Each structure stands twice: as structure tokens, then as C-alpha cells.
Simulated assay, not measured.
Amino acid sequence: MLIAVGLGPGDPELLTLRAAGLLREADSVFVPGEMAYNLVAAYRRDAISLDFPMTSDESYIESCMEENAKKIAPYALSGTAVFGIIGDPNFFSTFSRLTAILKRDHPEIECSTVPGISSITALPSVADLSIQKSFSVSDGSDPDVRITLKVRRPQKIAAELKKEGYSEFVLVERMYMDDMTIYTNENLPEQSNYFSILYARKL
């Protein structure tokens, strides 16, 4: 098993309790470089640092991903391996590319993620800002994902978004609560709880 754990925006005190627990309990821990290692050092001095280059050379990035996947695979096959990554493992991170290789070469390895505080949500605290209306996040490329909060009428919103080219939908109702429910395109409800988030993506 391989679990990617978000390490937060850079302050070791901003790791979640879940992240700290997994770092302590894991059979092995991997991190992408010195900064991430320093964040986990209080929990795992034996963390293995891997090289994930910051470059635009796609062929070199891919070869490094292949090499790192080979290093992680034996640990994930024999026990619980944790990959600690700065921020959140599902936002602009290398983890999805890494798991694509692992799932291709070792489909028997179960991969999951544990969220971390991302720079997106940390920014308002650091800069003393208050965000009360809709906002967009971009790395400079054209957006293909839209996230809508407080979704009371999922079917209606999905129908409107389809006109804009969105075709994949996931609704999470009452996230991380005891009665959490996840819906997809096939079973979006007509109405949902106030604590609902709709993910929409252009395919």
C-alpha cells in the first residue's frame, strides 16, 4: 500500500494529526527532497529522500518518475509506504504521475491520499485576507476543472455546466462526516445537503 500524505505549506506545525500518525506508523516513508524531509524529520528520521527534478524537460521527468516508482514499489508491496509531499497530494503535485506508473507496473499496489493544507488555503492566513466570494486558481494553463460549493441542486447545475463543455461530475455530500456520500454522473441527486461540493471536468 502507498499513501500520499499532504505535509502542508511549509510549517511542520501545520501537519494534520492524521499525517503525523501515518508518518509514525508507516513501515517506510519517502519524501521528494530536503524541504519535505525537514517537515517529516520530527516523526521519521529514516525517511528516504528521492529526486524529483524541477525542470520542463519531460523526458527527464518521466525517467525520474520511473526510477522513483521502482524504488518505492518493493516497500509498497510488502507493507505500508507513505509518500510525504508538500501542500496537498492532489493539487499540482507529482503524486498522480507517480501512481500512474505504479498502477501500470504494479496494479496490485493500493494507492490513496490524505489531504494537507495547501498554499491555496494557507494564503489568506499568511496575507491576512478574507475571501468571501468565488475565486479562481490557475497555473497559467486553461482551466478544465470547476469546483462549486454549497450545491443544493446538483442535477440543475450539472445541466448548466454541460452547456459549457463539462462532462465529468462528482458530488461529495457531507465530506468526512459519518454519513458522507459520493455521487457520480450516473446518480447525481436532484437535491443535496448544504455541505456539498461538486467537481466538474472537461474531458
Rank of each mutant, 00 (worst) to 15 (best):
I101Y: 13
I101V: 15
Q155K: 15
L149I: 02
T80Y: 02
S93V: 05
C111M: 05
S130L: 12
T121S: 15
K133G: 02
I147A: 02
A76S: 12
F83N: 06
D128H: 13
V114E: 13
S56H: 14
R174K: 15
D142G: 02
R174I: 00
T148L: 15
G116Y: 01
M65Y: 14
C111W: 04
I131N: 01
C111D: 06
P53Y: 07
V114P: 00
D105E: 15
E173S: 15
V170F: 11
I48Q: 11
E62S: 12
T80A: 06
D139W: 00
P107M: 11
E110Y: 09
T99Q: 10
T113N: 04
K133P: 03
V137W: 00
K70G: 00
I48E: 13
H106D: 05
V145A: 05
E173F: 00
T55Q: 08
K162V: 03
A122G: 02
D128W: 04
M65R: 13
L129V: 09
S134Y: 03
K150C: 07
I72K: 03
P154A: 13
E58N: 04
K103I: 09
R146S: 07
T148N: 00
T113D: 01
T55A: 05
P74W: 10
V172W: 10
F52G: 04
S63A: 14
F83Q: 06
L50W: 06
S130G: 15
F95A: 01
V145G: 00
S134F: 03
M177A: 12
R152I: 07
R104Y: 08
E66T: 06
K163R: 14
S138Q: 08
T113I: 11
